[in-house]
Nucleic acid binder design. Structure first.
Lengths: 121, 121
DNA sequence: GTTATTAAGTTACTTTTGGTAAGTCAAAGG
DNA sequence: CCTTTGACTTACCAAAAGTAACTTAATAAC
């Protein structure tokens, strides 16, 4: 008798894999969270708020989120330049799912840390 | 006047960052999702179900999830070896948050793909 | 009684992803 | 002129992940 497991990746078209892969990078979820909490922000504001993201990776992360239609990018033709970012409607619709993840993290971090310590002992 | 943005990373102790960083790898979320959907699974079953994860990365992902207390690993001293994995209670408590992410992905993949195509045109 | 098979990994090596620091651009201020 | 400013690039380097071969020990096949 053969078990029949639910698969998520056999086809590259799998929508769940297709989207989750995007969040499997280092910064996407955090950028969405920060933009969702703070509303409209400029590039350097996001950069300082996150603190340890490089300019390079913040740029590519924002461009990817823009391509996916989750973040809107508005350039003001001034010098020095001004660029504002905010979540789109689609991006906002993702927020509750991310904040629920974040609050789970907040509630369970103690247990996780304890577990990590035991494991490494 | 100075804006006061909510920060998530200034301190390395930030619990949200601390946990989200773990999910910011390539396979953790997917492994939890697969185990949550299918219950107890052996190493090769998980491997085949996901399809495109390398043995090496599946090993380190499972070990990390075990260290965090999200996954339980049971070794049967047989030859050839048998190792079974399943979510812990803590891991199961995370499932709803991940499935809600997955169903959001499922519902919005079309819009995201359309957006990507427009962006690259 | 060698040889192949099997599950769950390692290991050595290569590729991809991300980090670091310096450079760019064009106008305004000194 | 020289500096400053904001949002990036670019060249170079380090870390994470992929690939393919190897390991282990008992049973099965030859």
């Amino acid at each position: 008798m053969e078990k029949n497991f639910k698969k998520f990746s056999t086809s590259p078209q799998c929508p769940i894999r297709n989207v989750l892969d995007r969040f499997g990078d280092k910064w996407s979820i955090l950028v969405i969270l920060v933009l969702g909490e703070n509303g409209t922000m400029r590039f350097n504001e996001i950069n300082k708020t996150i603190g340890d993201v490089s300019q390079k990776m913040l740029t590519v992360t924002l461009r990817t989120l823009e391509a996916d239609g989750l973040v809107a990018r508005q350039v003001f033709p001034e010098i020095p330049p001004r660029v504002e970012y905010q979540l789109t409607h689609l991006g906002m619709s993702l927020m509750p799912h991310i904040t629920s993840l974040a609050s789970w993290a907040d509630q369970n971090i103690h247990q996780i840390k304890t577990s990590r310590e035991k494991f490494n002992a």
